[in-house]
Simulated assay, not measured.
Amino acid sequence: MSEHAGVLGRIRRLMTKRTPEPLDVTRQDLVVVVESFDDSEACSTALDRGAQGAPHWIEADDAVLRHHLELPPAAVEEALALAGQDGYTAAVPSHPVSPGHSAADGGTPLSLILQRVQRLDAMHCAQEKSRMASLAQRLGGNALGWDALQPE
């Protein structure tokens, strides 16, 4: 009888085990735990640095991965539509980039931050970094870098 109770107990625990709530990008306690704005820096290097720093990146937890882009104004809607297919949303409204920058089409480029919640590791980070660089280039802009946020 105790053998059955053990099995039933495990089944009950599995059935009542809740999956954690997804990370809410609007949480007030999110802080940047890792960032890289150097094209030549490997994501693995940035993540290692983030794991050592304070506040530090926690590999086992979800993070808000944000990509910082500068795009011609006419390309912002297309960027949002394309990135939206992969679950990205705009983190903040688009705004003009500081003077000294120029867009490929001669207009004043806009700064756009695309974000999504995901478990962050070096391979997926590198894939997303490459994807965003490609997206920005196709639309006449630049990928400036990325950062990741987790609760403090």
Rank of each mutant, 00 (worst) to 15 (best):
G107W: 04
E3G: 05
A51D: 15
Q127F: 09
R10I: 10
G106C: 02
V64K: 02
S102M: 06
T45C: 00
L110E: 11
A79P: 11
A133G: 15
G100V: 08
A42R: 07
D61P: 09
H68M: 01
V92Q: 08
V117D: 05
A42G: 08
R27C: 15
T16R: 06
L139P: 03
K17I: 10
R13T: 15
S111F: 07
P73L: 03
G53R: 02
A75Y: 07
G50D: 15
S44L: 10
S130N: 14
T45A: 11
A60T: 12
L30P: 09
Q28Y: 07
D121L: 00
C43A: 14
K129M: 06
L23K: 02
R116D: 05
E3D: 00
L47G: 14
M1K: 01
V97S: 10
T45Y: 13
V32C: 15
G100I: 05
H124N: 09
Q118V: 08
A74D: 09
G100F: 15
A126V: 08
L65E: 01
A91R: 14
S134T: 15
E59F: 13
L80C: 14
R119G: 07
T45V: 13
L149A: 03
L14F: 15
Q115F: 00
T19N: 04
L47M: 14
S111Q: 04
E70Q: 13
E21G: 04
V32F: 13
L144S: 11
L80N: 07
R13M: 11
T108E: 07
Q137E: 13
G50Y: 10
L8A: 01
E59G: 05
L8E: 10
T89P: 01
P73S: 04
C43H: 13
